[in-house]
Amino acid sequence: MAKKEEKIEYVKNGKRLDGRKVDESRSLKIEAGILNRADGSAYLEWGQNKVIAAVYGPREALPKHIQNPYKALVNYQYRMATFSVPDRKNPRPARREIEISKVCGEALEKVIFVEKFPNTTIDIFVEILDSNAGTRVAGLTAASIALADAGIPMRDLVAAIGVGKAGGEIILDLNKEEEDAPDAVDIPLAIMPRTEEIVLLQMDGLLTKEEWKKALKLGLKGCRQVYEIQRATLRKQYEAAEKEAKVGEKGEREKGEKVK
């Protein structure tokens, strides 16, 4: 890598390296119900990021000693496919993936009515197929749709986005190039959109309190946009299922069975 100290301008005349504005996220597309074995699933494309999320459960938690008599366990597994990064990734779960799985599972536990399903586990599997920064928030956004698709009772969706800093500017939804800036700050953020409570928050890089306030404001705005796309996805999915049910008896084959 040619790393001769040539100054890159990360924002020039209000435009970023890929032409976006500072408060503009990459294009986001979500589709629900794409895997027929899973209880719920979603496919998401966010810029170059491509993610599949699947939900199984609530089902009996095994071995028995891991069961919680008060609530369901939320087992979130974030994995990157070996080919999803420039250099092949070792298929063994890395420490990074284990940490991300932990914090994302905790974020979703807040929105799921876990107390309704004692002794069970809700397994959420997130596979990253292609990546360009921001995969944990992409995974969480997809997983939230997969949970809704599985008919699991939730208080709200979880909407997530990355926000941060590159070249001294606070920007939304950093791509890899921006995340590699010498002064880069990366803040994965996830909220329950109805109350704007924060359920996932991480940060690395040097940030002042003023910059943080600005970044949070931008991040919340981004989350609201993500939420709108999530809602549109579910509405589309639900309307399609309803139409199908009206046309014939076919409609009961998928959606009808899932809602217990």
């Binding site: 939320v74 932990k102 914090v103 905790e106 536990e109 807040k110 803040i187 329950m192 109350t195 409570e197 924060i198 359920v199 996932l200 928050l201 991480q202 940060m203 690395d204 890089g205 040097l206 940030l207 002042t208 309190k209 943080w212």
Partner: peptide, 12 residues
């Protein structure tokens, strides 16, 4: 400066 955040736990 702040240089790292980490939220944990199932609350908000």
């Amino acid at each position: 400066y702040m240089c790292a955040f980490q939220k944990g736990g199932s609350g908000s």
